[in-house]
């Protein structure tokens, strides 16, 4: 599992995160919420091992992420970036197959098989024959989703846990594909022993899909826990500086619904 213990992150003399601690077990989805500039992407990049924490520890399967090599990290976690451009055009399948690059031992047939699986899971099979730069933003997003799915599904022992980090994966997606994406994440967490950390902006989507929520404001933890406990009017006020009402979900027992007041 992923254990984040009291990390602080500073860049160029500014403290971007302080005292953040979370645990994510395989099969769990942690949602990160917060206003723009709250430190969500910084936290995700730090978890990905992109830059060091000033203090604290990040452990994945009891191994220190900051001591792991770039190549070793690529074999146990995948990161879906907020926006990815392509310098030169590639076919969709070539982009998706890049997810298998950390696993040079795979045969071409095994990679092709993974690519088809991932395209199906990301609902991107329809345009698998096309070239990446001719796709819309939302379609490109799903191609990258398929790519990171290849990376977390490749070369695994049965039940070997993997970490999946997603930075605003729903940003360019229509409502149907937002729901489809979160349903896919749920399915993968439940059936493939994935630990998932996902940055979301839609509070209600996060409440319905995540096991735990982390609310950040100005680099500090406002709330951390199950959606019901994390989403209170006080926490939402602190995180978004906007008043909100939290009501019982009319259809689903135990779920809450957040209404922001303008």
């Amino acid at each position: 599992m992923l254990q984040v213990d009291q990390i602080a992150v500073a860049r160029d003399g500014r403290t971007l995160l302080r005292n953040v601690s979370v645990d994510v077990a395989p099969g769990q989805i942690l949602g990160i919420l917060g206003a723009n500039g709250a430190g969500k992407s910084t936290l995700l990049a730090t978890l990905a091992g992109e830059f060091p924490a000033a203090s604290g520890r990040i452990l994945w399967q009891s191994k220190d992420v900051q001591q792991m090599s770039t190549a070793a990290l690529a074999r146990c976690r995948a990161v879906l970036p907020q926006a990815a451009t392509l310098a030169f055009d590639l076919d969709v399948r070539e982009v998706v197959a890049a997810g298998a690059y950390p696993f040079a031992e795979l045969t071409p047939a095994a990679v092709a098989d993974l690519v088809e699986q991932a395209l199906k899971l990301a609902d991107a099979s329809d345009y698998a024959e096309r070239s990446y730069l001719h796709l819309s933003g939302g379609e490109q997003q799903r191609v990258h989703l398929a790519r990171v799915l290849v990376q977390v599904l490749a070369a695994r022992q049965a039940d070997e846990p993997r970490l999946l980090l997603l930075d605003e994966p729903t940003a360019n997606l229509d409502p149907r594909h937002q729901l489809l994406l979160l349903r896919t994440l749920r399915l993968l967490a439940d059936t493939r022993a994935l630990a998932i950390v996902v940055i979301l902006h839609d509070v209600n989507l996060a409440a319905s899909a995540c096991d735990q929520l982390l609310l950040l404001a100005q680099g500090r933890v406002v709330a951390y826990g199950a959606p019901r406990a994390a989403l209170t009017p006080e926490h939402l006020q602190a995180a978004y500086d906007t008043s909100a009402r939290v009501i019982e979900h009319p259809d689903t027992d135990g779920r809450v619904l957040v209404l922001f007041d303008l």
Binding site: A48, E50, P81, G99, Y101
Partner: peptide
């Protein structure tokens, strides 16, 4: 060739795919 393809995706993405 793998590293070069990964670089087309971006420097961060290449690092995520294991190419420091």
């Amino acid at each position: 060739w793998r590293a070069l393809n990964a670089l087309l995706l971006g420097e961060r993405e290449a690092a995520h795919l294991g190419f420091a």
